[in-house]
Design a protein around this nucleic acid. Structure first.
Lengths: 156, 156
DNA sequence: ATAATCGCAGATCAAAATGGTCTGTGATTA
DNA sequence: TAATCACAGACCATTTTGATCTGCGATTAT
């Protein structure tokens, strides 16, 4: 299904939490897990990956914890998904060249779907953590402001 | 992960196959399963759901099978996903009101992500089966023609 | 009318992905 | 040097998904 994993949810929640602290504030796992009722062990793994990918800075000591390494507007949802789940792939066969797929040659669905995937990635890249801090006006973004040529409903 | 299920893949392949036949042509499961190496039993289920949702017409008899019920340009990817997997939900908690989610009140990620979900649904609704038949020009759609305000790469 | 050919339906099993737990290690600082 | 924190990897549980099995029901050609 077209669904985010819980780990990504946890990551986003944690990052949202951090981006609402005073900048540079160091927060430990327990505080975050407490705030959102997330099991500490799994949150630990999630935050580790985020720090490996340069999104968080870890402070490995008593009174330590994690802090944001970048400005919240420089971290996109796509960055987070990439850090936690790896690259987005709508199709299971879209990673380079999947040997198991017999019908690459006569597969008509691949390239249209890759087009959609590209657009989804772009959407995810457009939105930054900043949007999670309450007071941000509205999303902006091309799609939002553009004219709906389709005659179809827009869902937002 | 943000991935389509195999069943949806199968459905799209089958529909792509059907939309490339002469209109109204009746094709049975075996032919499709043969063309793409899909297990017949599971393909059967997939096609059944598509016919329940009014995308396919079933012909329940010898020399029977399935045919497209609508024009391929009137069936969107979203229609197919809805028929096979049920409604798209990026977040596990976004179906009406999930009791298990303790922090609905202080959840900052929900509404921004629902916004993204809406846009994804719109993308999926914009693309029809017609795009799978080779000779179609290019996608059209608002996103494609719009100006990229972001300064970021576009992925397509 | 009846047998062959097709789809319909539900139960059930297998595999994979994900979520979660457990145990122990290593860095830093009070 | 002991307390507090992150780090790391193995491991198990759960859920989702994919696939299979069995039997039934509709339609048509003979």
């Amino acid at each position: 299904m077209l669904k985010l994993t819980k780990k990504v949810d946890y990551a986003l929640l944690a990052l949202s939490f951090l981006s609402q602290q005073e900048t540079g504030k160091v927060v430990n796992i327990w505080e975050i897990s407490e705030a959102y009722q997330i099991p500490t062990e799994i949150l630990a793994k999630v935050l580790q990956r985020l720090s490996k990918k340069g999104i968080l800075q870890s402070h490995h000591a008593p009174k330590g914890g994690y802090s944001l390494k970048k400005s919240s507007k420089d971290v996109s949802i796509l960055d987070v998904i990439n850090a936690i789940d790896g690259p987005v792939a709508i199709l299971s066969c879209s990673d380079s060249h999947d040997k198991t797929c017999q019908q690459i040659d006569n597969c008509d669905i691949r390239s249209p779907l890759e087009k959609i995937q590209g657009k989804i990635m772009w959407l995810l890249e457009e939105m930054s953590l900043e949007e999670f801090t309450h007071s941000v006006p509205t999303t902006g973004g091309v799609l939002h402001g553009s004219i709906n040529l389709s005659g179809q409903p827009r869902y937002h």
